[in-house]
């Protein structure tokens, strides 16, 4: 992986994160973005399937010449809830 300090895509990805953070439909949860060459990869979890679907809209609009890969996951909240016991 290229050194972040010398990789111009690192700054681009950071600007993308800022815009994503301002985007109400797509900003959560725990989203992240990586840019490799002309590929944009969206990572992390989204609160709903709707949120997951719209997440690539921001990078597609900002970087129309890049290929956007949506690798986000839907946040899974269905796991059973164990009880942690404090004596």
């Amino acid at each position: 992986m290229a050194d972040r300090c010398t990789n111009p895509n690192f700054c681009l990805a950071q600007h993308e994160r800022e815009v994503l953070a301002q985007d109400p439909p797509g900003n959560e949860l725990g989203g992240d973005i990586d840019i490799f060459g002309e590929s944009v990869m969206l990572l992390g979890t989204r609160a709903s399937s709707e949120c997951q679907v719209v997440a690539p809209d921001v990078p597609r609009n900002l970087l129309p010449n890049h290929h956007v890969r949506n690798e986000t996951r839907r946040a899974g909240l269905l796991a059973p809830v164990p009880l942690e016991h404090f004596p």
Binding site: L29, G30, T45, A75, G76, L77, L78, A79, P80, V81, P82, L83, E84, H85, F86, P87
Partner: peptide, 24 residues
Amino acid sequence: VPVRNVAQPVLRRTLAIYGFDDAG
């Protein structure tokens, strides 16, 4: 003092439940 991060993405479930036998 026990500290718990209950952010849903950390828990990977809706919530956590903590039980106290003896209120300390």
